[in-house]
Design a protein around this nucleic acid. Structure first.
Length: 482
RNA sequence: GUCCCCAUCGUCUAGCCCGGUUAGGACACCACCCUUUCACGGUGGGCACCGGGGUUCGAAUCCCCGUGGGGACGCCA
């Protein structure tokens, strides 16, 4: 699924005119560089997605790099969550852990010698010095002492080296002053700013697409690139995702923030990806639900917004329903069974133990009615239990109007000899009965539905009858009448 | 506090760059239609250019200032 060529890219990829785009003639190389310090959340997934989409759009390479330089905060568990979530969402990486590549290793904890080598370059150039046991990067320019209210101490600002970022989304961003910063900790481990830049150089990254929270780091990174004598990559700082309620950006602790939660709840990855792609990006026409191939074809920097987007779980649920609705019967059943298997609850176990053909029918008559797979167990529970509960409120309402017991008796008589082989056959039976009695379908429906399901919502009544079969339908009638 | 980014319905957004639109779509909400409940679908409705100054015949659109929102300010990433 390749999109434009290098030439095409030059033409369309700029909001502001870039001076020189590095590596513009060669293949695009982007990277997603998560740190395994917490569960994989919506914001990370969206950053990964935009990188992945850009790689696929340009026919470039999507690199996965693990930024695990902070030994104290990393864990293998979180690493696996990252792999699993990316895979589940369909974002396969071309280079990185598990798949390899020419610029490995792809875990920073394994790249010590490379960092030492690059550090030596800075030392040789007189751009690194030691202080308090750590190694600092030395900025060029006029230095002045300033009292910092936030940190409540005097700091040294370095000016006269305006770092210019030519951002694909923000335009030209300039920073007049900065401070020297640590690149190697006193424990000998390198720090984010340093490894991030070194690896982008070593891995020949051409475009850095990341959250806007990194925009204020970028001047530091640009200075580092310059110190190494390397043209910085193209930067694209994408808007952040704000939490649904309350102030601030979405974080791992927020409701609905974790990708694995959606996986557990049976959301379709295609729906989640489609929804995520629309958070901060627009195809500019009125299309929203789109196959991934179309998103890839249309995705590019000019379509990315500058303002932050607030997460909306209702819209995600709607997107999920739209995808669910168009699954073929076979795929839907496979997905639903997988969901039940992972669920592992008693209710799920009962359903899975039932006759597969029966289970399949139950699923299929429910498919057009539900918003998500997670509704299924409660929605269909009565299909798998003889003694399902009767909703008291619904019963009082239904049984309090007209003569429902008489209707039930009439319907039982008619169904005793009726054809149960198809929905239409059952429908004809009920309609004939209603006509004969001078009544409507609705007069029989509510009480019959209450009898077979214990509630007032569910699949089409005739479908339920067909799937349940005559015996169970009549038994439930008798139970309600008793 | 300092620095940086941003600003169209409640929310996601189109329109802004290249001033003239009944400011469009989607989610959510309301009503009606369809209908065998509930959904789906259809039709219609309410709902927005943050404020103030400019520039201009004319500003959602260009400029400035406010205000508001977001981010960064770690030997975290």
């Amino acid at each position: 699924m390749t999109g434009g060529t290098g030439c095409f890219l030059l033409f369309i990829s700029t909001r502001h005119k870039p001076q020189e785009l590095p590596s513009i003639m060669s293949q695009v190389r982007v990277r997603f560089a998560p740190s395994p310090t917490g569960f994989f959340h919506i914001g990370s997934a969206r950053t990964a997605l935009f990188n992945w989409l850009y790689a696929r759009h340009t026919g470039g390479v999507f690199v996965l790099r693990i930024e695990d330089t902070d030994q104290a905060r990393n864990s293998e568990e979180f690493l696996n969550v990252i792999y699993d979530s990316l895979t589940w969402l369909g974002m396969t990486w071309d280079e990185g852990p598990k798949v390899g590549g020419n610029y490995g290793p792809y875990r920073q904890s394994e790249r010590g010698p490379i960092y030492k080598e690059y550090l030596q370059k800075l030392i040789d150039a007189g751009r690194a010095y030691e202080k308090d046991g750590a190694v600092w990067f030395k900025l060029l320019g006029d230095r002045s002492e300033v009292y910092d209210d936030h940190r409540q101490k005097t700091v040294t600002k370095v000016a006269n080296t305006p770092a210019v970022i030519d951002d694909q989304i923000r335009g030209r961003v300039e920073r007049l002053e900065d401070e020297d910063f640590v690149i190697f900790r006193s424990d000998g481990n390198p720090v984010f700013h340093f490894v991030n830049v070194v690896d982008d150089i070593a891995m020949k990254i051409t475009h850095v697409i990341r959250g806007e929270d990194h925009l204020s780091n970028t001047s530091k990174h640009v200075e580092l690139f310059k110190a190494f004598g390397v043209q910085p990559p193209v930067f694209a700082h994408i808007p952040l995702i704000l939490k649904q309620n309350g102030p601030g950006k979405m974080s791992k602790r927020d409701q609905g923030a974790l990708i694995e939660e959606y996986q557990k709840r049976g959301y379709l990855p295609e729906a989640l990806v489609n929804f995520l792609s629309l958070l901060g990006w627009s195809p500019k026409d009125d299309r929203e639900k789109m196959p991934i191939a179309d998103i890839i074809a249309l995705f590019d920097f000019p379509g990315i917004n500058q303002s932050n987007a607030r997460f909306d779980d209702k819209k995600l649920a709607h997107m999920n329903m739209a995808y669910l609705l168009e699954l073929t019967a076979d795929v839907f059943v496979v997905q639903a069974r997988a969901y039940y298997e992972k669920l592992g609850t008693p209710v799920a176990a009962v359903a899975l133990a039932a006759d597969p053909v029966y289970f399949r029918e139950v699923l299929l008559i429910s498919q057009p009615k539900i918003k998500g797979l997670e509704e299924l167990p409660a929605y269909t529970a009565y299909f798998f239990a003889e003694d399902f509960a009767i909703d008291a409120k619904v019963r009082d309402k239904v049984m309090g109007k007209g003569d429902p017991k008489a209707r039930l008796a009439e319907l039982a008589e008619a169904l005793a000899t009726a054809d149960f082989s198809s929905d239409t056959a059952i429908e004809e039976t009920i309609k004939a009965l209603a006509t004969a009695k001078g009544l409507g379908f609705g007069d029989y429906q509510s009480v019959a539905r209450l009898a077979v399901s214990g509630t007032n919502v569910g699949p089409s009544l005739t479908s339920m009858f067909r799937v349940l079969g005559r015996e169970r339908v009549l038994a439930s009638f008798a139970r309600l009448a008793a």
